[in-house]
């Protein structure tokens, strides 16, 4: 009571009804509303939106199937199953190459009805394969459609990228990919990919079996 500042005669007189002035004056202020479905304001750059599985510049996947993200997940929303991969095509008894590493993520699923968008998976990822986008419009009318699979999570192919499987760029090792020495798919990779195209349109579906957990 004692700290209340003493106004003049008129401010004392109208103090009990000052709120009316506030609400009246607010009517003439500019409206800050985002007219959502028509106008979408960008989120903060660091906003935790939908995940994305990144690629190396030649199109190979960064994910090495280590499952660290799945282990870090507090909500058990991530399911990863790794598999070996090598440069030998399927027709010659190998597996084909999806990531520069020894292994790759054969199955990768994120259940968006469990995921709390905390970002611990991003922190856990040793290859920066998993990052988050700013995309947030995820509502759907059934639970099954909100389990996102590897195909949905993988980043789209940019120019210079080549859809795996294909061997590593010639003369490069796994570590060279992280040193930034690979900048785009080489002609040899392109040639390999063309040769084995028929073989892998089939095998690409086999890699995503076990979708229905």
């Amino acid at each position: 009571m004692a700290e209340e500042q003493k106004g003049g005669f008129f401010s004392d007189l109208f103090a009990p009804v000052a709120g009316f002035g506030v609400s009246f004056a607010t009517m003439f202020r500019k409206i800050p509303t985002e007219e959502y479905p028509e106008v979408k304001w960008p989120t903060a750059p660091r906003y935790h939106g939908r995940h994305q599985l990144n690629r190396h510049p030649d199109g190979l996947e960064k994910c090495v199937g280590c499952e660290l993200c799945a282990w870090a997940c507090p909500a058990d929303a991530i399911f990863v199953e790794g598999a070996d991969n090598d440069d030998t095509p399927v027709s010659e008894g190998g597996t084909g190459r999806y990531s520069p590493g020894e292994r790759f993520g054969r199955i990768y699923q994120i259940n968006y009805l469990r995921c709390i968008f905390c970002g611990l998976c991003i922190e856990a990822c040793p290859t920066r394969a998993l990052t988050m986008t700013n995309f947030y419009e995820l509502a759907d009318d059934n639970r099954a459609d909100l389990i996102f699979t590897k195909e949905q999570l993988l980043a789209p192919l940019q120019s210079g990228m080549l859809a795996p499987p294909h061997p590593m760029a010639e003369g490069m090792e796994e570590r060279d990919y992280y040193l930034g020495k690979v900048t785009k798919a080489t002609d040899a990779q392109q040639q390999w990919s063309d040769e084995h195209a028929a073989e892998y349109t089939v095998s690409s579906t086999t890699t995503s079996e076990g979708e229905t957990r």
């Binding site: 609400s23 009246f24 607010t26 409206i31």
Partner: peptide
């Protein structure tokens, strides 16, 4: 509408 404007929304 008017209450909206008084609360700074459309």
């Amino acid at each position: 509408r008017v209450i909206g404007r008084m609360q700074n929304r459309p």
